[in-house]
Structure formats: structure tokens, C-alpha cells
Amino acid sequence: MSVGNPRHQRHVSLRILLAGLAALIMILPFVIMLSTSFKPQTFVLEMPPELIPSEPTTRNYREAWSGNSFAKYFANSLYVALSTTFVVLLLSSMMAYAFARFDFLGKRIVFVVLLAGLMIPGIITIVPAFVLAKNLNLLDSLNGLTVFYSGGMVAFMTFLLRGFFEKIPLALDEAMTIDGAGPVRRFFHLYLPLSRPALATAAIFTFLGAWDEFVWALTVINDPEKRTLPVAIAALQGQRATEWGLVFAASAIAVIPVIVVYVFAQRQFIAGVTAGAVKD
């Protein structure tokens, strides 16, 4: 089929139209969120809704950023998300390597234990986890969040990376071994560099998981100085009246950086998902 063919072109236009329509629906809630965040009158919902505010203001953003210390919450979330990503990538790639390229006693058991951990809703362990956090002196601490998020995500990322590691040709591994490279060197100089897309994917998932987590942070963080973004945003929803403009300004502060990061990383990400998902 040549590109110049009119039938083909009509086809492409139709596709773009459909995709555009779908995209519109997908982003409409965000558009409304953003539009509300720039509106001055924030308690009463106006009817009919206007998409472009008649008197746009950045007051909500200023109030969220400085008045409600969202700058601080942003930094907290960033710290937790980055440190979790680092810990999870390191530990899960090591585990994935062990699973993908070694045979060892108890492999099956360890594997099943990890898998079982994935099947059960994480929220059910919240009380024993809380007591554990207390005993480890990790309550009300950002590093505590990192430790628990990492523990919670390491199994899943191990599965993700293992599939990728297995596809790295054994021949390369053997060639390096013959050259005298030990397992550690092979891990750092063969497996990690060749798994960049998978690592990027795991990094995105881990980062997002830590950035967005709500329930555990709500449970263990008391000090307002140590709140993360989701906790702080939920706290803005008042008991008796919600200042929607403020809530959405704060939400935008939480969402936009994630989108930016995703846009930049998405090429790697797509490659990673493709490698992980295509196995038919």
C-alpha cells in the first residue's frame, strides 16, 4: 500500500480523528482541574461551568506553594520517591539476576513466596507493619517510608526485570566468563547496561508508586513537616467545605512534574514494556 493512496489517507484521517476524540475525553478532567485551579471563587461551584476562567488568578498556587508549605511536601515526596527508586532498582536487579542466571537450592520456594506477596492486598498488613515500623524506629520518618515502599515493591520489580535478564543471550554471558569476569562484573558490565529499557520501566513504576502512595503515609506520618503530597492534598479536602481551587492547584503541583518525567522517559519506558510484555 503506497502512502499516496487516497483511501489510505482517509484512513489515517479517521484514525487521527478517533484518537483525538479519545484523547480529549482522557484529558478533559485534567483541563477542568487546571481551569478550576485558576479560578478565584473557589467555594461555590458555578453553573454552567466555564472552561476558561473569566478572572484567572494564580492565588491558589501561591497559597498552596507557600501558605500551605507544598514546597516542603514536594521536596518530601521527591526525596522518598527518588530514594525508593534507587533502593528498589539495586535490590530487585540483583534478585532478578540471581533468578535469571543461577540455579540454587530453594529457588522455587523463594519464587513462590515472592509471588504470594504480590497476590495479597498490601493494606491488610498495615497494623503489623505499623508495629514493626515502630519497633524499627521508622515511624514518622521519610526514610521509614523509603524502607517500607522499597520492601513493598521489590518483589514486583524483580519479576519485571527477571524476564528481561533471561532474554540476554547466554552466549554473551559465557564469553565474559571465559574472559575471566566474575558474576559481579558480569552483573554490572553486561546485564545492567543491556537492560536499560527495563530498568527505566522499573524506575518509572517505582517512582510513581512511591510518589502516589497514600494510605501508608497517612498512617505513619504525624509531623506535618513530613507529609508527602497525596497526604497533604487529601488534607485540603475540608470536613465541611472544600476549597476546590486550592485542592486542584495543589494537585497540579503534584501531577505536572510526574508528567514531565514521563514524557522524557517514555521512549525507554515503551521499549521496556515491549520487551517485558511480548512473549507470545
Binding site: K134, N222, Q239
Partner: peptide, 19 residues
């Protein structure tokens, strides 16, 4: 420490459990 009213009961319970 300000705790939202909706969450205070839960916070107290968890904190009691965790001493």
C-alpha cells in the same frame, strides 16, 4: 501536631497499637 478531625481517631488507634 494538627491532625485532621476525620483522621484523628484512626491515628490515635494506630498509635495506641504501636505504643
Amino acid at each position: 501536631v494538627t491532625v485532621q478531625y476525620d483522621q484523628l481517631h484512626q491515628k490515635l488507634v494506630t498509635a495506641a497499637a504501636g505504643e
